[in-house]
Design a binder for these strands. Sequence first.
DNA 1: AGGTCGAGCTTTGCATGCAATGTATGCAAG
DNA 2: CTTGCATACATTGCATGCAAAGCTCGACCT
Lengths: 213, 213
Amino acid sequence: MQTDVACSRLRELILDGVYPPGARLTEMEAAATLEMSRTPVREALRMLAADGLVRPAGRGVVVVALEEADLNEAYQVRAALEALTAELAAARQREGRIAPADLRTLHDVATRTATATAEGRLADAVRLNRRFHRTIAELAGNTMALQALERIWDQIQVSTLHSLMPPSRPAHVSGQHDELLAVITDGRHEAAAAIARAHVLDTRSTAHKEEHR
Amino acid sequence: MQTDVACSRLRELILDGVYPPGARLTEMEAAATLEMSRTPVREALRMLAADGLVRPAGRGVVVVALEEADLNEAYQVRAALEALTAELAAARQREGRIAPADLRTLHDVATRTATATAEGRLADAVRLNRRFHRTIAELAGNTMALQALERIWDQIQVSTLHSLMPPSRPAHVSGQHDELLAVITDGRHEAAAAIARAHVLDTRSTAHKEEHR
DNA sequence: AGGTCGAGCTTTGCATGCAATGTATGCAAG
DNA sequence: CTTGCATACATTGCATGCAAAGCTCGACCT
């Protein structure tokens, strides 16, 4: 149905930065762009608003623009949730409830992320990095946590896309990914939680510092 | 605007169990009940769906009915998030960034929760209990976390409302609340995180056991 | 020249109409 | 008696129309 089409296309446009944070967006304009009537666009905008990607602002909606403080909050939530998913994934691994193929996939994604980062393919790196974290969340087998994380990731992505820059220490990031991968593979759930949390918070503070130079 | 009216009224009806989990709900019927046209109702239903309170199911929507497994997942997420909010609240308290009046409010809510529970006023107890946890989340000063928690709480409430029964050990619950209150008041953030997490998970396993007798 | 009030246009919110789709029911055949 | 099919109906999805609410811009007054 057209509503879903509108929703996913608008989401893409926003996540790709075509509509940057703070951009105003009227339903008529969006309807014209997507070549459909206002009704499905309207519903799509409401869904995106519920997902926190846009915010009603007087006339029409604006793409969310998280301030630094909001980003800090978002990262705290993300850290808490990713600590959970990493812990659960490790616990499932310990109980032998994770298929070796899935684990290999995760390993593969980690490798490709590191390669893309090292080669400076920034867009790919971002996408793969997110995929790495999402794969872990999927291995955790907790749908609620995955959904909550998708929302947070979306919001963070929108508000940081404009200031993308290569990580200062690429090896550092992939080192952390490898560590995480290792403890999950070993089923050490407590360590997984701690490392995941630290990794997320480290990402934030590094990006944050970069920002202010 | 009518959309928001529809949204909050429907949310209330669902959270109060008027539309129990699994209930089918057509937009025409809801429109008739709320005495407005289908359009705002339609949008309201989509918002509720985005919040995870209803789920599109063929024709119309059904109120979510979390299975036991889903509830376990929900409680894991809730525990992770409440550990975060408790930790943040305690940290803010330590830094003297929480107004004494707010802390007294929290104390007051805890007391009233205990009273309502002890006196068997079940509906009040549930409402106050949720308020207690929400107040802590508010003290944490993290909007994202609060929003994520509201969603989880809503979903849990819907699916557990039908099986409400007095806690087996009322003193046990209010004891945990008091502990949490104490460590937050003392600004011991690590302890706050641990106690909050344990309390949430304890709530789950107790309710879960009750369920199966 | 600057501020304030007003008119017009843009845009939204809601209702309703129409077409399409999925479902249930009843009937007939095996 | 059960199963399969066809028909009719309930219900949704989308478009469009209409009224109300804001903004913008301009003109007039101070």
